[in-house]
Design a protein around this nucleic acid. Sequence first.
DNA 1: GTTTAAATTAAACGATTGTTTAATTTTGCA
DNA 2: TGCAAAATTAAACAATCGTTTAATTTAAAC
Lengths: 205, 205
Amino acid sequence: MNEKQLEIIHHAEKLFVKSGFDGTSIRDIAKEANVNIAMISYYFGSKEKLLEAIFTYKIDLFYAKMEAGNIFTDADSALQTLEKYIKHFIKTMNINPGLFQFLSIEGGIKKRLMVSPTFLKFKEYNFVLLKKVLEKGFNNGSFFYNDPILISATINGTFLNFQMNQVFLRQQLNITSSEEYNNYIENHLSNHIFKTIKVLLLNEE
Amino acid sequence: MNEKQLEIIHHAEKLFVKSGFDGTSIRDIAKEANVNIAMISYYFGSKEKLLEAIFTYKIDLFYAKMEAGNIFTDADSALQTLEKYIKHFIKTMNINPGLFQFLSIEGGIKKRLMVSPTFLKFKEYNFVLLKKVLEKGFNNGSFFYNDPILISATINGTFLNFQMNQVFLRQQLNITSSEEYNNYIENHLSNHIFKTIKVLLLNEE
DNA sequence: GTTTAAATTAAACGATTGTTTAATTTTGCA
DNA sequence: TGCAAAATTAAACAATCGTTTAATTTAAAC
């Protein structure tokens, strides 16, 4: 991918996050990326193909960053691995603030199932990874709540809530800058999610 | 509101949930609701005003249903009130499956801040209600995790995740019908969310 | 039964949509 | 330098968008 294509992807993503796929026009993107309207069809084929290209590009970057995290270390306890996973996941996802929200919305739109395969694979990847993270704890008997589906729903959902609810939450938290908000997510929210899952897993009853 | 207006609202909501606001045309709505295109402008003024009307209509219904729940009973413990709240919230919200997702997406779209006041009030309402639910437990010293913002993020987020992730989750859970899925949400998911918040609140460390 | 207002319709409005065309410029290689 | 391929452009394409118009039908009030 050349520089111009990356420029298009970058600005298209920004606009898609802000206004949604259907709420963003090719001309909006062309203007923002400072390219001719025809260049988008020229490089990507169509608006939908551009969406797909953004999906695969961003998701591949995510995969690479996640692998680079080296979450699994034999010396770590199951709980330590879980903490590493949650914090690394949020940090990695938060490199592009709003991306997770965008992926979730557009990947979930029922009328646009065309992009879903890439997104389903992405969800599958995260789910399999989480199951692997939880495995050790279940096997050695230190984790008691064996339901990866509900656990992943809570991790992803809580994080997603902080992206979709930004206006309200920033108001409540009295946070004015985006940087401060992202810091809150990577620190306080990370800790909250980890603690929540931790007490859930360790509770014996 | 007369019968025809309700018909428009009903079908517009259905289509908005499926395809998003920008992904749904006035003609789509008119066709589905079996009315002339001009009737929408005639009754609601514009497409955006229709969106606003759906917001207020559905949210007002939600308020009424929530109040009818009579969550607060002096005889109940703080934990029992919390359980009632979570289960009643999900049951009420799930009367219109996908509505919470739709409200979250369209109410959060940054370029459409015009509808936000209604939605911000709705969030405020839910937040204040949850704070009231948690109050007793904090006051009598039985709850130890005093952070309503993060707690509400986990409750709402986990529930939202089950709406946005429907395709993937139904595949994982091997659920084929929508009814079965909604039952799962109102039973298993409700229990999961309650248990998660419960152990989080009761943990002393 | 007549009158007045409300409801409903088909048609047209200009603006915007995603995409394509055909012409021109730039680039990289022989 | 000359040439073929790639990149870039402005313009036009038909389709669709939300909205309005003006004419007609239906309903309600007197």
